[in-house]
Simulated scan of single mutants.
Amino acid sequence: MSRPAAFGPTDALFDDLDLDELRRRPGVKWERVDPDVLPAWVADMDFAVPPVVADAIEHTVRRGDLGYPSWQDGSPLRTAFADRMHERYGWTVSADAVREHTDLLQALQFVLHLATNPGDAVAVQTPNYPPFLATLETMGRRGVSSPWTRTTGGWTPDIAGLADAVVAHDCRVLLLVNPHNPTGRVLTRDELTEIAAIARRHDLLVFSDEIHAELTYEPHRHIPFASLHEDAAARTVTLTSATKSFNLAGLRCAVAHYGSEQLLALRDAQPPDLYGTVSTLGVAGTLAAWRHGAEWQDRLLRVLDRNRRRVAEALASFTGDDRCPMPEATYLYWFEADVLGVGDKPVDEVLARARVLLDGGAGFGPDGQRYLRLNFATSAPLLEEILTRLASLARR
C-alpha cells in the first residue's frame, strides 16, 4: 500500500507493515478474522516489538538464563517500577510495596478474592473494559455502574452520580480506569481529588488501572491516583504494566503497588505460587522497555497522535461536526455507531458490510450498546483502508 495523502509524515518503523505478514501472525487479533477482514478491535498494536526488548529477550535465551531466577526479595521489577514512577510522575513509592502479577486482570481477581466477598458492591465508571465487567459478574460481585456523560466538550465523569451510586449501593470498592478505556479520557487532578474525597468518606478500596498512562498525549498529564495524598495512597492498589505502551501483551507481566499495609500482608500470607508468577522473559522484556525504550516510545506516540487526528478528521467528515472527540490517551477511539448509520448490532453489521472488525456494544456496559471502539495502532496505509471502508457505510 502506498502512503495516503491524508496523513502527515510517516515513520518506516511503524508504517512499513506487510499485510500478508500480519495475517500470518498467530495472535488473537489477526488469527480470528477472514482473509478479507481488517481487524481493529482487540487492544494489540500491529507494530513490531521494540528492538531493545527483542534484543533483551534473545540475550536472555542465548546465555541460557532460563533456570529458576534468584529473586529472594522479589524481581527487579519492584525497584524498576518505583524508579519509573518517580522519574515520570514525581511519585515516590517504596519498592517493598510492589508485587508482580501475570497481568492486570489476574491482579484484580486476586485482590477481589482477598478483600471482598460475593455480593459486595463495586463501583465502576461505564463504559468500561469488558473483562473487568465480566470479572465482577463471574466472581459474584455487584457491579454498580456510574455512567460517563457525553458533552459538547467531550467525555466527562459524573462524579456526583458516582458519589450517589456509592451511597445507594453501599459500595466497598471503586474500580478506577485512568486513562479511561474506552473513551480515552485522562482524569484531571481536580477530578481525581473529588473521587479521592468520595473514597475517603465511604472508606473505599480503590483499584486504579493505569496501564495506558504512558500513552497520554500533550497537553494532558497522567496523575497516579495514589500520588494525590497519603489517604489516597493508603487505600489504593495501583495496577500497571509495560504491555500496552510497548506492545508486549504476550509476555504476561504486570505489577501492582499495594498502598494498604494490611492488604499487602494478607496478599503475602497466601501460598506464593497459588495465583501464578511472572517469567524470566517477561521481567527481561519489561526491564528493557522501561530502561531503554524511550526513543521507540517517543516515535510511537508521534505516530499514534497522527493516527488519532486522522480518525477524528474522518469521523467529522462522516457527520459534518465534531461529536466524536479525540481520545486524550490510549490508541482506542470510542465513537457513536450512529455515525456509520448501522443498526442495533453495530459490531456485527460493520463486519458484515465493511469487512472491518471493531469492538463495542453491550460488553462495555449498559451505556455502550450504541458505540464502537476502533484500534488505530496500525500503519498509515492500513488505517486509511479501514477508514475508507467505514466511509462507505457512512455514505450509504
Rank of each mutant, 00 (worst) to 15 (best):
G320W: 02
N181C: 08
V186I: 10
T236M: 02
A249L: 14
A254K: 02
T277M: 15
L287T: 08
A199S: 15
A234W: 12
E210Y: 03
R185Y: 11
T240Y: 10
N181K: 10
D305G: 12
Y275K: 10
V311Q: 05
E230Q: 09
E214G: 10
E218H: 10
H180T: 03
T280H: 07
A196R: 01
L204C: 06
L263Q: 02
R252I: 04
R252S: 15
A256I: 05
L274S: 15
E191I: 02
N307Y: 05
F318P: 00
G285H: 11
L251G: 10
L274Y: 12
D190W: 02
Y258S: 03
E261W: 08
L301R: 12
L248F: 04
R299E: 11
T236P: 02
A232L: 07
R267I: 07
A196V: 03
A197Y: 02
L192K: 03
T236Q: 00
R291A: 12
V237Q: 06
L187Y: 04
T183R: 04
S227A: 14
R308K: 15
P182R: 01
S260M: 04
E313I: 01
V303T: 07
T319A: 13
E230F: 06
T193Q: 07
L204P: 00
E191V: 01
S260T: 03
T236A: 06
G250N: 13
G285W: 08
L192A: 07
S245R: 09
V303A: 10
A226K: 00
Q270M: 12
T238Q: 08
A269Q: 08
A234P: 00
A232S: 08
T238I: 08
S241N: 11
L251T: 15
L192G: 02
C253E: 05
P271A: 11
G184Q: 05
L315F: 07
T240C: 14
G320D: 03
E313M: 07
D322C: 11
S245H: 10
T236R: 00
A294S: 14
G293M: 10
L266K: 12
A288E: 13
V311M: 06
V311I: 08
T243H: 10
A199R: 04
E261S: 14
A199W: 01
F207D: 07
Y258D: 02
L205I: 01
T216H: 07
S279P: 09
S317D: 12
L266W: 11
I211P: 04
A289H: 04
T243E: 14
A265L: 05
A316G: 13
A265K: 06
S227D: 10
E214C: 07
F207G: 00
Y217D: 04
T319E: 15
Q262N: 14
S241R: 09
K244S: 08
D321I: 12
A233V: 06
A312W: 04
A232Y: 01
A213I: 09
A213E: 13
T238V: 12
Q262V: 15
V278L: 09
A316T: 14
L187H: 02
D190M: 02
L205F: 01
